[in-house]
Design a protein around this nucleic acid. Structure first.
Lengths: 328, 328
DNA sequence: TCCTGTGTGTGAAACGTTTCATTCTATTTC
DNA sequence: GAAATAGAATGAAACGTTTCACACACAGGA
């Protein structure tokens, strides 16, 4: 353990290098400075082990090199992966990540936004489903997965195309009677387009389909009730199911297997998200994979670049990933 | 969206309340102040929507209300859950969480520590397996899962008892020939005690057992090679396996099933960690569950309390959780 | 009435940057 | 060769807090 000595300041560096304070500042801010000066400063800084004090800088300027990431939680793999990728992308650009979780609670969400604005972070990336968020327009803000104000860019996967792709794959794999199962938030979001894409594909290709959606406050029980009705019949009337999320798909698969319906033999199932299984290189189920890496990279990019040029909505392309719940 | 107005400062509050600057400061720092003054200040602050500027405070004092959490990644559920819990516990105490991921890279780990010390966070919670970390002693530091310097408190689950418990459970459930499989880091850590506890239980209860450990740089292939040797025999010689982690257990179970050995009928498997399956209320496998919530709470507690009283190592109790890979 | 002691509000100084008006140097132009 | 100009380094002021030496008021003892 090293001694707890007073940290060197810019003043120390300036003195050691024999230059003025402002010159040192310029060097550390990438402002052009004569080569001989730059070298002297860099040398002195290195010898002293100097690093810029984030708090002094944050106070004086409004540059904090910190981006706030606000998510519902760090339990669901989707959010975790997103946080992981954002963290890496931000670190690569020299930014720190301030992470807050909200548990979907609107009050907590607003509290995070307020806190974070007060503290002058350089930007905010959020996944939130609160439509009434108050955001000051002078802090760069990017939202993932849900369109918000028109002034706030949204990054999402191409949910509509994803829905189409799911229908297409199920159909290709021989399914004749398709079913969409989804749990929707009462707040409209990009994810709603999954069923729309699914529907459009089925309709224009004359495929038999059913859409069954419930509200999130009704919970999965409402979907189970629907399935109970279907399994009560002699023949379960669907042979291909597209679930709005991988997590839902897992629960549905559990249900089916408990009712002597085998996946994928009797019924093929596709989820949405593309969550890798437990940090391994496998999927929980066949799925429409969102390009999380691109989404994170895009969000960071928009945030830290010139936002005036940012599009209101970026939809990134999805892919189908085989995961054992569809026939090969 | 609200207007982008200049944020109110303490000076504004002082003027509005008709008191001195220092008095306002005291109110916001919980330093006793006459009631009539306190009320005036609180009133004025509320009306102005004043909040303390974190950067000014961080500059002047060394109070930043920020704790850094350093983890290998946000992909493995163990780390994610830990981050989630730390975030909640910290928020509940009014702290912000600065999160960094290291990908197990020693250089990145040291970089994070340096950055974070430079930036005067109020404390650091880390999960790192780097033995050569340089830490300044004047920043509160807690490490999870690995004992470090004696001056740095470590929080872990009771790995030794966990190993004993796994052996006990397998034995109780009728296994006669136990096997421990583990992947160890070359850096000694608390997790090494899992096999020691397992061994001690078996030895003192006259249970037949085998310990098979490989180094992490050899990878899982080394364990697979060992199993190949075992499966090549007419009868697979083990009927109960304790794996060092849940993730390893999953991979081993996969292997066994591919070799026509069914779990739990032929072979029972117990993992370690207690990772819940995909944010659902199930486990991937029968497991020795670490009390993540207690571990996070303890880490935060030690960090923010008087550390001089902190024990060098806190071992929290583990529990056995049934997960379908052992017989009931 | 005066003096001392205690408790509490006051406001200037300091924290380590960035910024900007100023000074200085060197180069160009007539 | 002198004056004008561009370019670059300089250093003081300012950012919004916390802290601390000080002033002040009031109570109690002589």
């Amino acid at each position: 353990m090293s001694k707890s000595a007073k940290l060197p300041t810019m003043k120390d560096v300036a003195k050691k290098a024999g230059v003025a304070l402002g010159t040192v500042s310029k060097v550390f801010n990438g402002i052009p400075v004569g080569d001989e000066y730059r070298i002297k400063v860099e040398q002195a800084a290195k010898e002293l082990g100097y690093q810029v004090n984030v708090y002094a800088r944050g106070l004086r300027a409004s540059k904090t090199n910190t981006v706030a990431v606000i998510l519902p939680n760090l339990i669901h793999p989707f959010y975790c992966n997103m946080a992981d990728l954002c963290c890496q992308d931000l670190a690569a650009r020299g930014y720190r990540m301030l992470l807050s979780t909200t548990s979907y609670d609107p009050k907590t969400e607003q509290g995070c936004i307020d806190m974070v604005q007060q503290n002058k972070v350089d930007g905010i990336i959020a996944i939130t489903y609160n439509p009434d968020l108050e955001v000051k327009e002078d802090i760069p803000f990017v939202i993932i997965d849900r369109k918000f104000h028109n002034t706030v860019p949204c990054v999402s996967s191409d949910n509509y195309a994803g829905g189409q792709l799911a229908a297409e794959k199920l159909s290709e794999k021989g399914c004749k009677h398709l079913l969409f199962l989804g749990i929707s938030s009462r707040v409209p979001g990009e994810a709603d387009k999954r069923s729309l894409g699914f529907e459009s594909y089925c309709a224009s290709n004359h495929i038999d389909y059913t859409i069954e959606k419930v509200w999130d406050d009704e919970g999965i029980d409402a979907l189970i009730a629907f399935l109970d009705g279907a399994t009560a019949k002699k023949n379960f009337p669907y042979d291909g199911i597209f679930c709005g999320t991988d997590m839902l798909a897992l629960q549905i698969i559990d249900y089916l297997e408990k009712h002597q319906l085998s996946v994928p033999e009797d019924i093929q199932v596709i989820g949405y998200d593309g969550i890798p299984k437990f940090a391994l290189d496998e999927y929980y189920c066949s799925t429409i994979r969102q390009p999380l890496d691109q989404m994170a990279a895009t969000a960071v990019d928009i945030l830290l670049s010139d936002r005036s040029a940012a599009p209101a909505l970026v939809c990134l392309p999805v892919t189908f990933c085989e995961g054992g719940t569809t026939k090969r």
